[in-house]
């Protein structure tokens, strides 16, 4: 218990110093740009940290509401995409034909700039809600499916033979062996996809929507220098949404599959 506490402190301390240092440098650079270098649009380029923090605090209600809208829409798409991706992975692991059909396209989709499709999908659907959900879902679909398939296949032969020796039914092999074994793969897919889904949702909002953090981001950008602190606040909120989505997935992973090798304490029994 005490050892863990010290470990935590020793890990957190450098990070705290780094963040503080960075913020201090930022604040200093901002002052330099504004007063020493007298760069045009100095505050837009690098605003005072304390001003952005004040704005964040002042408009926290609005920011939370709009951020929540973005997060919610991205979340719905993310869940749909993840469910479909996991489904496809199971299908591919069950049927060779399905795998042959889908796998090359899934791989190719990892090599092409998927986010580039956002305007196209918005062009087709013309509905902010639906296209946000579609983009987030689409971005989530392939990473989840590929990583989950990798997990389903990670089962080694003796583990399957053990099931065979129990005369296990096919559903039991899936339920008791393959699905639990695929959880690490599934979660690494989810962790890759979650921040991307948020990015996708914000992208759609920038292309013309009524609600969401992207909308106020764009609006404050257009209003010009007078709204620069608000603009930077929206950037901070956007970044936080991305990190929060990742953190949420990590948290769920720890709760659902605490047995994974990476969660084992180091230096313990083997």
């Amino acid at each position: 218990m005490r050892g863990q506490h010290i470990l935590l402190r020793s890990r957190a301390l450098p990070l705290v110093v780094w963040v503080m240092g960075l913020l201090a440098v930022w604040e200093g650079a901002s002052w330099l740009l504004l007063h020493a270098a007298k760069v045009p649009l100095a505050q837009s380029k690098l605003p005072y940290v304390h001003e952005v923090a004040a704005t964040l605090w002042k408009y926290s209600g609005t920011l939370l509401k709009e951020g929540g809208a973005t997060f919610g829409n991205a979340g719905v798409g993310f869940l749909l995409g993840a469910a479909a991706g996991a489904g496809l992975a199971v299908l591919m692991s069950l049927s060779r034909t399905v795998e042959r059909l889908a796998f090359p396209y899934a791989v190719a989709s990892q090599m092409i700039p998927i986010l580039g499709l956002a305007p196209i999908i918005y062009g087709i659907v013309r509905d902010e809600q639906v296209s946000r959900i579609i983009i987030s879902g689409y971005i989530t679909f392939f990473p989840v499916s590929l990583n989950m398939l990798r997990g389903l296949r990670s089962v080694d032969l003796p583990a399957v033979e053990l099931m065979h020796s129990y005369a296990a039914k096919p559903w039991a092999v899936y339920w008791k062996l393959r699905l639990p074994a695929s959880l690490p793969g599934l979660f690494s897919g989810l962790k890759i996809a979650a921040p991307l889904a948020v990015t996708g949702a914000i992208l759609v909002e920038l292309m013309g929507a009524q609600h969401g953090i992207g909308v106020i981001m764009l609006r404050n950008l257009y209003y010009g220098p007078s709204h620069t602190y608000m603009f930077w606040s929206t950037v901070v909120v956007g970044a936080s949404l991305g990190m929060a989505s990742y953190g949420l997935m990590s948290l769920i992973e720890r709760l659902v599959s605490p047995w994974q090798p990476e969660f084992r304490p180091k230096g313990g029994a083997k």
Binding site: I202, A239, G242, M243
Partner: peptide, 13 residues
């Protein structure tokens, strides 16, 4: 850690 956090900032922002 900081670099990883930078990565979480949406490209659009």
């Amino acid at each position: 850690t900081l670099v990883a956090a930078l990565n979480a900032v949406p490209i659009v922002a």
